[in-house]
């Protein structure tokens, strides 16, 4: 589904990703972990197509297409979704109007008819129950005055409405209490199936207690330095990122 090869990317002339490789198949959940500054957010931004980031080398193939050739909205149309670390506020634009526009723009990209009011409402009610979202939240201006937890839940609610093929969760657990993490994780797990995939980008392993990954990758200094099964996350939690750093420096000395 997603194949990233030898990716070099950065911002404002600074190289952050230096030869990043990753392959994700349908049905898989991958977790990218790493210390601050290792390039986690850069990876999420490059995948979603943020303008300020520059790709200097490498390729990204998504569902058979060259992802780097596509504008951000086309990537969304192809089925790529990014749950933002810091969701953006737009005053005066109701959350529900925003989501309806989003859902129908993506449908349009795929050559589907827009959802009519009845079908949209039905879908919305179903997903609201899943994410424990109150109707009053949806009539408020997009993310304006939302608590940290409400913003993150709103991200996953949008993901549920859009039903992407690849969902990237960028530090979705940051700033959430344990109940909110459970709700968010429950939402993600319910949406998992054999055809879609999830990429969880996180600093801490606690979200991975609830969203169980198939693979854990450790990102350090712009590259994946270690990959393993879900137990790797626990090891990291226990021993901290220092042990990875030490392993790397030993390797480099050799």
């Amino acid at each position: 589904m997603l194949r990233i090869e030898n990716l070099h990317a950065g911002i404002e002339g600074k190289n952050i990703l230096k030869g990043f490789n990753l392959e994700i198949k349908p049905g898989e959940v991958h977790a990218i972990m790493g210390p601050n500054g290792s390039g986690k957010s850069t990876l999420a931004s490059v995948l979603a197509g943020r303008q300020d980031y520059e790709v200097t080398e490498g390729s990204i193939e998504f569902l058979g297409k060259d992802l780097l050739e596509l504008s951000p909205e086309k990537r969304a149309g192809e089925g790529l979704f990014l749950a933002f670390q810091y969701p953006i506020e737009i005053a005066g634009l109701s959350t529900i109007n925003f989501i309806k526009t989003s859902v129908n723009e993506i449908r349009k990209y795929r050559g589907q008819e827009p959802l009519d009011a009845v079908a949209f409402l039905k879908l919305m009610k179903e997903k609201m129950a899943l994410m424990d979202i109150d109707k009053s939240l949806l009539s408020r201006s997009l993310n304006e005055g939302f608590s940290g937890g409400e913003k993150k839940r709103n991200e996953i609610f949008q993901m549920a409405m859009i039903q992407p093929k690849l969902a990237i969760l960028d530090e979705t657990d940051s700033g959430l209490d344990i109940d909110a993490i459970r709700i968010v994780a429950n939402g993600v797990n319910t949406l998992r199936n054999k055809d879609n995939a999830v990429l969880v980008v996180t600093h801490y392993q606690r979200l991975l207690d609830y969203i169980i990954p198939d693979f854990v990758h450790v990102l350090y200094n712009g590259r994946i330095v270690k990959s393993g099964p879900k137990e790797l996350a626990l090891e990291l939690e226990e021993r901290g990122y220092e042990f990875i750093k030490n392993e790397i420096s030993v390797e480099e000395e050799v």
Partner: peptide
């Protein structure tokens, strides 16, 4: 940021 957020949701 606002524009990019919309773009990411499929909105040109």
């Amino acid at each position: 940021d606002q524009i990019f957020y919309c773009n990411q949701r499929g909105i040109d």
